[in-house]
Amino acid sequence: MFEAKLIQGAILKKILDAIKDLVNEASWDCSSQGMSLQAMDTSHVSLVAVQMKADGFDKYRCDRSVTLGMNLSSLSKILKCAGNDDTITLKAPDDGDKITLVFEAKNESETSEYEVKLMNLDSEYLGIPDTPYSVNVKMPSHKFQRICRDLQQIGDAVTISCAKDSIRFAAKGDLGSGTVNLCQTASADKPEDSVSISMQEPIIQSFALKYLNHFAKATPLSPQVSLSLSPDVPLVVEYSITDDDGSDFGYIRYYLAPKIDE
């Protein structure tokens, strides 16, 4: 039996909003450690990895590991039926062909119950090497979202370059060009507004903005986003997932293959 209860059900709604347009079908791997998912987009250019730790749930029971394959747009449709303040409970029997979602409104006697069909998916699990990156940037997530949205007006790709204490996002297209330069901020008065850059070596790499704009759908999950870059490897865009108390619940990591010179 698998059962996971989340008082702040909105977190699950936000996670689905952040992945459903990138990945159609995926499997949640549920173990005593928590729930995780790894899936590539249909064109195999990007990869998304989600982790929700067991101790972040208000109740978590997983007697034996289960794989819950599902259509994410179906799951997202069902989650839209839950209110933002609802408690969400996921339940799956050991050998069932569906998952049950129970939504409970706060301080009300209303509960609703939905079922989503499970699917057997051939999932390929990719091994992600755990290597240090040349550049790590932490910045406000809304700023990253804004930059990606603005530069997509100019071109299809953004060139990210980092040198000294600044990171530069540049795009070119038929209409002209655009550049956004961000410098490391000095004060830590408001940590969520800060920009911090740690650089081992200068870097310049290009990425498709279409995917970065998909990743930015995770913005409501976290006030800060972390970008990690190294020469000739995929970019990592990470949003940590925290609950209202600020406790660490897990993460969404997106990996994006670069565009390289032919």
Binding site: M40, V45, Y125, L126, G127, S206, P234, A257, E262
Partner: peptide, 14 residues
Amino acid sequence: KKVQMRISDYFKCE
């Protein structure tokens, strides 16, 4: 001219 790489060019199946 730049070409789009795939994620499987970097990460291998386990």
